[in-house]
Design a protein around this nucleic acid. Structure first.
Lengths: 350, 350
DNA sequence: CGTTTCCCAGAAACCGCTTTCGTTAATTAG
DNA sequence: CTAATTAACGAAAGCGGTTTCTGGGAAACG
């Protein structure tokens, strides 16, 4: 059983002995110091490769270098119910990719109840090389300290413009295009009267989505009727009441596009309760492509955000940012339309 | 800004100076060594408390002691779609509780694609103090090495009897009682003809659930009709086909209890397709209380498993196991019935 | 040919904590 | 009152790396 006893990871010292050099030299090779001759460097590197050696992350971080770990700040929000699997997938994609890059991620859940956690303190203690924030909404004071610190931070799926960071990286979806795709699709089906079930109005996703929505309507020469635009946040409840409000108008749209699948589900409920059918009376396009879309009646046509991809991008971005120290920036990921059963073709009556 | 520069965590040395003793002594106080006088101990402890000092986990683990970190092995399974938020919540509950106990968790996602990860190696390198496994199904050879190692392992929501560990802890739900509650409820509503939509037959959850189901039926003097028992696994597809199979029988049950909400959703689809209504023709009790239950038509009556509680218990258990080194054992958590709209009262016709 | 550089390599200190081991002072025994 | 224990503390050597600093040998210089 070399499994039990001999199970001891190789150390710098082992490599040094194999190569017939000092520990110092091996370390220098690894850290790309210049004062190593080409021949020694090659010799050492050969052995490192042969033994597939990788410096101990714990020791490495203790001596002030990379810990090869990324902090992940998670948030649990009862309101997001339907959305949690979204985060799970992002997180999985992130973790998996990080693993490939030889990083691990350590998660810091939000406190949720009780005293708030000091993210910065936790990150410093764990010596993480960078931080990824998911589903945070900037209401925590402790978040700001983190964002203002020297630690590279990556904000995912941000909600809110006023992020506190000076050095934040953003990963977001192209909500503008998402809205465009929804409108394009509905227009192609013959819809000319289209409403919007929005999320938290002043947030980045909601606003860019709304902008895309209005842009397309204008482009097609359709009227933007403010009474067909409703909604407070991204929850199912909000969708329900928003739809109800719209249904009280003297004339109602033939289709609505939603800013989340949860609102779409709420809209569905409002329609049913009003004795209307989807897509018979009103067509609906959701947003997010969470699991439930497939199980609603009718199954929801929606805009997919590839969560595993997002996770992978997040990993690549934060690592690059750590290694290259690149400047803060924002990355926008494409979204795609997933057609299911919640939209119907309309006879020309524009 | 003591934020920036003075932002350096206290070290043993700082405490030692404040207390006027040596670093060694402080360390001994922390690690409960006996060769410290009561008075010094008290003095040092006072300062530790005052400064709310906690030894650096990285340094501590490097010198062979606790790393104050727990490894979490996550699995992403496309088949579990609807179930992912379940894991998210468990994980959140786990992480939050661990945080309270001053532990952090580092996650190791399953490889999913590409070469499998060597869990044991990862855990050893990260020097985690224990491991929690969620949603694994023991098909990975590398899992076995972990379970056979000296690392305390905790298996959550296990699927399968033949877990490979010699020192595993289990945290599971009381599926037996879950089934009983479902049957009791249906019986009280007047149902006398009850079927079962099962999951993977030879797994622990499925079998204990089935046992409870049959026990209750017998207890009430109801016939156990094998042709009303169907299902291959816990997916929506399985539920769909299982329900279809049952509907093909000459007589059909007035109610079915399911071993997962996903199967219940599938059953709902099969019913609708057959032109039958729920709960009009067939009542359904789900299992798990995942988010979708609230959004199906009708909303699903189901058996709730408190995921946040599970996470918390997992944290407490693994920590206790690490600290006290207690013997492997199995903990069974209670479940509870959540009544919604998928069951109806039946007039007496037994 | 003797000096001054430059190039490489290794010794040593350090990161923050644990643990062994030695030392001193106080206690008990003889 | 001395000898043998015992109690209490601290110096020092790790853990596995990183980094500074020192020094020897070869090349370049006068």
């Amino acid at each position: 059983m070399d499994n039990l006893s001999a199970r001891r990871a190789k150390t710098l010292k082992d490599i040094a002995e194999l190569a017939g050099v000092s520990v110092t030299t091996v370390s220098k090779v690894i850290n790309n110091y210049s004062d190593v001759s080409d021949s020694t460097r090659a010799k050492v590197q050969a052995i490192i490769h042969k033994e597939s050696f990788c410096p101990d992350p714990v020791a490495s971080s203790l001596s002030g270098k990379a810990s090869y770990s990324i902090g992940v700040i998670l948030r649990y929000n009862p309101v997001w119910g339907l959305h949690h699997s979204f985060f799970y997938k992002v997180m999985f994609g992130l973790g998996r990719r990080l693993g490939q890059l030889n990083y691990d991620c350590v998660v810091f859940p939000d406190a949720w109840l009780g005293e708030p956690v000091d993210y910065l303190e936790k990150c410093v203690r764990r010596r993480v090389d960078g931080v990824v924030l998911m589903g945070v909404d900037f209401d925590s004071p402790n978040l700001e300290a983190l964002a203002q610190s020297d630690l590279p931070c990556l904000f995912i799926d941000i909600v809110g413009d006023n992020y506190p960071g000076k050095n934040g990286y953003f990963l977001a979806w192209d909500h503008y295009q998402g809205a465009c795709q929804a409108v394009d699709y509905l227009y192609a089906l013959g819809h000319r009267q289209i409403g919007l079930l929005g999320g938290l109005p002043n947030t980045y996703p909601a606003r860019s989505h709304r902008d895309g929505f209005k842009q397309r309507l204008s482009q097609y020469g359709l009227a933007i009727r403010e009474e067909w635009i409703a909604g407070d946040d991204f929850t199912e409840e909000s969708g329900y009441y928003a739809m109800k409000t719209i249904l009280q108008q003297s004339s109602i749209p033939t289709a609505v596009v939603c800013q989340s699948d949860a609102t779409a589900v709420g809209a569905l409920r409002a329609l049913e309760q009003a004795g209307l059918s989807c897509p018979g009376d009103v067509s609906i396009v959701g947003y997010d492509d969470i699991e439930v879309c497939r199980y609603t009646h009718p199954a929801l046509t929606t805009i997919r955000q590839d969560t595993l991809l997002l996770g992978r991008m997040a990993a690549d971005t934060i690592i690059e940012c750590i290694r290259e120290g690149c400047a803060p920036r924002e990355q926008i990921l494409p979204v795609s339309l997933i057609v299911r059963d919640s939209c119907r073709r309309i006879e020309s009556n524009a």
